[in-house]
Amino acid sequence: MQKLFRVGILLSILLLMPTTMIMGQEEEGVKVEINNENGGEARPDLDTVNVELIFSDIENGSANILLNSPERKFFSPTDFPIVEGTELIHSIISVENGKAAFDYMFPIRGDYPMTVEVLDENGTVSATHLLNIHIPENPDEVKNAIIFVGILVLFGFLVGLILTARRGRTHAI
């Protein structure tokens, strides 16, 4: 019984582990910045954020961006399971004064891998950069999930308490 207890407690801790909060990632040649107009962290499916790519190797030109959604994780399902691990944007955007930007509402939490291909004037790829954008979960949704799971555990606890007590009584008779 005690073993089961331990496993149960361990599983609940694992499931309720909060998401880590890391924003962009710097890579040689190109840096990605996420600016949220509403302030604070970008919330998925709520905030439209400005994704700014800062290039150190080119001033003007264009870049082919390929943004993928986070891969599916077994223990953390998201609001849009169909979207997980698919292509989100594949387009060429212009680079002006060493900067390229686009506004985007990220659909789910997680790490978005982004491939940026720098194109020269003839349209041939001069450099390829791999970047990572981290979008944390909406704190309100995390709070609601904890409350919901808490209610379920409480419900189970009461049911276990009542049923076991009743069972004990019938045996005692």
Binding site: P81, L152, G156, F157, G160, L163, T164
Partner: peptide
């Protein structure tokens, strides 16, 4: 959502009730 995701989610949620039940049972024991 794919059937696999639905089944998995249901399993997780029922497991939460199960954990609660085990705790309740443990308290009485």
């Amino acid at each position: 959502p794919p059937m696999f995701i639905k089944v998995k989610t249901i399993f997780f949620l029922v497991m939460m009730i199960g954990i609660g039940m085990l705790l309740g049972m443990g308290v009485i024991k």
